[in-house]
Write a protein that binds this DNA or RNA. Structure first.
Lengths: 346, 346
DNA sequence: GCGATGTATGTTAACGTTAACTTAATATCA
DNA sequence: TGATATTAAGTTAACGTTAACATACATCGC
């Protein structure tokens, strides 16, 4: 059996003996077509299993009604929530979403940008970590007036809207909460210097300590100075578990820990329980992100909720706005985080 | 400032006074071009910030070097691992990956298929749950000889390769394991009848009980008969928690539970602990999937590992194979699962 | 009866690229 | 030396669609 090529608009036109344009009008419901002709065309379309060629259409129309989303990794509630919210926002506006994964590599970041630009998407939402080469390419794209919105990425350009959670104040509040409970030896688990959001959380932690005249003890800050691409964000239970083990072996161990995120917190909690200590009596634990998991740890986890969905919604909204009209002021939104107190600290 | 249109290949050709074809040859490194000309062109390309228009190129070349992946939801280690493995397999072959999310809705499933077909992707990998309308559309796509591979989806077509984990024997082994440990009252948490994989796990569970002459008690099977689109696969801790609560309130409560997946198992464990019972002494728990989480529950979770990465790798491999040559026998692979025994059952 | 308007089609050219062919100059070799 | 390759371009037409314009007939109000 030989493979037959898909029918084109001209094929349809030829078989029923009309001009291609007439078929186009029926398919696109535009312009004048008689009811009789409409039916003839529609029947042929159905019979020949015709589908418009999107490439040709987009090439001619100069728009694809498609938006690209670049994520660092997919195995991460943050990415997940953003993607879902973006998708909803876009499909409400009639746009399709294509997602690309960069695995936190600058090279893949760029490959994703290029691939999306090559497919002439109408706009791009970028939610990967900043890196020099990627930023340069992104600037080049924005320079060409392709609508771009960045989420949680440290990138500035006069054509690019940005959205981020206030990780600094989130970290500050989490630490403040522990201080309010009387803790003096508060640890930070999972510091990472090439992840901007994480860094901000750490800075918030440091600021809160400083504000309350609590000396900063470097031994209480675990983490590593990664240089390049790093770990699958998701399985950071390991980081938490190992970090906590190290902290517990200190001569003067902490009475509270602030973990970079909920997964790290879960790992830390496991280490605490294994050591025969109680949470929060011996060690209080705070996480970050308020993932669904946080409700189901034992005890339930105090954590900082960042508005993930809202970030995704806003990203979709700002991008659609910019697609409609490129000549607008850029917006840079910073969204508040909220401390959710549960039983792991009280 | 007025927005200038991006430079085209002809623009480049015009500014340096050569034929467009010459520029094309330089850009694509094909055919003969003198070294001197090459440099002239390359310089103009750089100066004018030129990027080939992928739509036009794909339209002409009749291929996009892009593959689409349709996932039911993104908030799910299963989707995640598959996506990562597929991505790796494809990028090794020089293909780009676009991911679409259907939110387990037949309508969105179809929208995703159509969007991908409209963008003329070279092939599609489908990892969503089966549904009638979606299957019909998918068959129509496969009929047009567009390469399609399904992963964990119950779909048969003489042009479509399929890959699935052996959920039945996974469920069987998990249950067998509990029976071997002497359990007679074994519950199943989170039954769902519109999720094929889940159904198979349940059937494996039932088969193991039957094989060992253990009567099936319907009260020990929790779950609901959902009709349509369902829950965000990911936060099924709730299902596990609530299911376990119900089981614990039975007059003759189970001594072991087999949960549909690890998240459900975690929820169940929380309920067990809250009731003041010990795992595995009072109630043994088995999960499914072997997510990273399973190592960090307390106690660590016995679970059934399904080869997620392998499924993704195979999907990429089979799809690329079919893209290269459509006239090949279809393959239907069923991959073994492996019971990982940890402390939640022993 | 005549311009104005509405309806139903057809024609042309273009979106940006490249496969396939053509032309022309230069190099190679028996 | 002439035949044959090789190199370096240019020309044409097409991928499948649609915007813009052109044509033709019917209807309408006056």
């Amino acid at each position: 059996m030989t493979r037959k090529k898909p029918a084109t608009l001209s094929d349809i036109a030829a078989t029923i003996g009309v001009a291609p344009m007439t078929v186009s009008r029926v398919v696109n419901k535009s312009g004048y077509v008689s009811e009789e002709m409409r039916e003839r065309v529609l029947q042929a379309v159905a019979e020949m299993n015709y589908r418009p060629n999107g490439l040709a259409r987009s090439l001619k129309r100069q728009r694809t009604e498609t938006v690209g989303l670049v994520l660092g990794d997919i195995s991460n509630p943050y990415s997940t929530e953003i993607a879902n919210a973006v998708r909803e926002g876009l499909s409400a506006g009639g746009f399709n979403l294509f997602i690309c994964i960069s695995e936190h590599s600058a090279k893949e970041d760029i490959a994703a940008f290029d691939s999306l630009v090559d497919h002439n998407v109408d706009g791009i939402i970028v939610a990967t970590r900043s890196n020099k080469e990627g930023d340069e390419r992104l600037a080049g794209i924005a320079d060409r007036y392709i609508p771009v919105v960045v989420v949680g990425r440290d990138f500035h350009h006069d054509q690019v809207d940005s959205i981020a959670a206030d990780n600094f104040s989130g970290g500050y509040e989490a630490t403040q909460h522990l201080i309010d409970l009387g803790h003096k030896r508060i640890a930070f688990i999972g510091a990472s210097f090439n992840d901007r959001a994480n860094l901000k959380r750490l800075q918030g932690y440091l600021a809160a300590l400083t504000k309350h005249d609590i000396p900063i003890d470097e031994r209480l800050i675990t983490g590593k100075k990664e240089t390049a691409s790093e770990s699958p964000g998701y399985s950071t239970e390991k980081i938490g578990y190992e970090g906590m083990k190290r902290l517990l072996s200190l001569p003067n161990r902490p009475t509270a820990v602030f973990a970079r995120n909920d997964f790290t917190a879960v790992g830390a909690m496991t280490a605490v329980k294994e050591a025969g200590l109680a949470i929060p009596r011996d060690i209080a634990v705070v996480g970050f992100d308020d993932t669904p998991l946080a409700l189901h740890t034992l005890p339930p986890l105090t954590t900082v909720r960042q508005p993930m969905r809202l970030q995704g919604q806003l990203a979709a909204e700002l991008l659609l706005r910019r697609i409609k009209n490129r000549e607008i002021e850029t917006e840079n939104r910073v969204l508040e985080c909220e401390l959710i107190v549960r039983q792991s600290t009280v």
